[in-house]
Design a protein around this nucleic acid. Sequence first.
RNA 1: GCCCCCAUCGUCUAGUGGCCUAGGACACCACCCUUUCAAGGUGGCGGCACGGGUUCGAAUCCCGUUGGGGGUGCCA
Length: 602
Amino acid sequence: MATRDRRHVATGTHRRRQRRCRHLSVVGSVDRTDRGVRRRLPGQLDQLSPPAGVFPRSTDGGPGCQPRLTGPGDGDSWRPEGSGTGPGCQPQLTGAGRKISWRPEGLGTGPVCQSRCRGAPTAWTPAGSLGRTMNAPRFRIAPSPTGFFHVGGARTALYNWALAKRLGGTFVLRIEDTDAERNRPEWNQGIIDALAWIGIHADDPTFEGPYFQSSYAEQHVAEARRLFDTGAAYYCDMTPDDIQARAKAEGVTGYGGWSRDRGLGPAAGRVLRFRVPPGATVVRDLVRGDVTFDNATIEDFVLLRGNGSPMFLLANVVDDMSMRISHVIRAEEHLPNTPKQQMLWEALGHEPPVWAHVPLLVNEQRKKISKRRDKVALESYRDEGYLAEAMINYLMTLGWSPGEQEIQPWSAMQDTFALEDVAKSPAFFDLKKLAAFNGEYIRAMTPEQFVAAAEPWVAQWREAHPGHVWNQVWFLAMAPFVQQRATVLSEAPGVVDFLMLAEPQFDEPSLAKAWATDDAAEVLAETIAAFERCDWTRDAMKEAFDPIADAHGMKPGKAQAPIRVAITGRTVGPPLYEAMELLGRDETLRRLRSIPGSVHTG
RNA sequence: GCCCCCAUCGUCUAGUGGCCUAGGACACCACCCUUUCAAGGUGGCGGCACGGGUUCGAAUCCCGUUGGGGGUGCCA
């Protein structure tokens, strides 16, 4: 039986690979190259040839250029577990959370092939690509500095990172800062910091960059010239207004290749357009299979603006080429651009990269999440107290399934992530599920880890409450209770701050509830009397209180209301006797005696 | 308008022609536990968009319909 099962699994995996290959029509080369990459994996990572050299690491530039990553600076303080670094650095897992029960050492012990080879993306075919075949795969992300890091971009980064790490490849960060309106140097550091938060560290050997697209404008223009020289591109003097007017006059839409054969040379105000060749362009996509575009439906797009500056499409392709990017993994919104880029690669004499377009992240309206409508800044989640590990884990599951157990450490996901397994349909970015993941991770921390992780928010509390002393020993003692109640770290101080405040903060609804029963005053008085003489332990307090509740014909929980409000100011909170134990008999009795009356009871 | 992509519980997904009476997770509901609230436990609700094929057999393959999304800039 067992034997049969095992064989079954093996066959299943095999069949899946075959199917993918057939589907993508890259049968032979996939496996061969694939295996080659894998074989190189163990030992030779350090022998990877350095990048072309045309793109020296930008250390010269403005304030944003220097990655500031390693020191114990503020960037580090965001790592919840404090000492840990990098992906795979997980909470201790000794906590009570049942879902997080992996054995750290047990990872990766499975058959190497099964997890490894599935994920190996198609690499270069041996023929005709200038020795690039011999190199390990090179991935990249190309965010533009917008002042925040988009969660969708974070997921894309994670997918790229997982593959780069596992395949012994390189992860290139190129900041596309060519739009003058969206280019503030200080935003570049934000990108570095955001990536570091999700475990993608600029000082990791797998990481390369950041490069800045704006530094390579000359090269973009030079490549455009080449295109013009070979006839693959031509100049055009039509303005957008001209195009519109012409289209209207002739009852057509779009530009329509008006200047194609006019033999115009470069001049101020003239744009350089790519001459889209006849035929069809097949984009070979690892997620979507072959996507065919009829070139007749693609306009001759602009390469160089009237002022001579390069457009995105051109810059993007030239940079990817120069940086020898082998795999372009990005969001699906770029799929319609891809045939144009592929034509550019070919016109420039290079074999296009492997494409993979991952599904969009959408909101409840099923539209792609955007800054305008949705909370998309990774930083905002960090600031609210989502744990990096939880965010990483959740992001990975959007469009991909890590298997039976969806709560998984990064190291496991890194080992099994495969583009072939990425879903094609858009994924809803579900805050509730993110919160659930976060809760799991919070509960999996040791109290010490939790207290350390919550420090930034405790510090905020201190600032907001001058004159009050935050008792860290008490916080640690209460930590397990807080961990069960907080879904984000920012909520943590509020769970126990009644202990730290000189007076609880009462609110009227709570007071009303405290006095809601006829017996409230009596219960309170009897409790005070009992607490004056009982041992000051949680068990003793419980023993003292339960009979009082019983005598009044109430369940302890209900009878407790005035006590709880007197101590905490609220009707909900962590276990009471434990809190009172810390508070001490004197302060507890003081609070019990000084609970305000309610307007409802007079 | 044109081009492209997508379609399994409310949501994220498993599923690769028979192991499917469609599995898991989040959410929701009920109950248990209980010192409030949580956490935890047990159970429940709930889905293959529709119509045609192909096949002994279809969630799975093909075609169409419908629905959703993305792209269509001298933005990136």
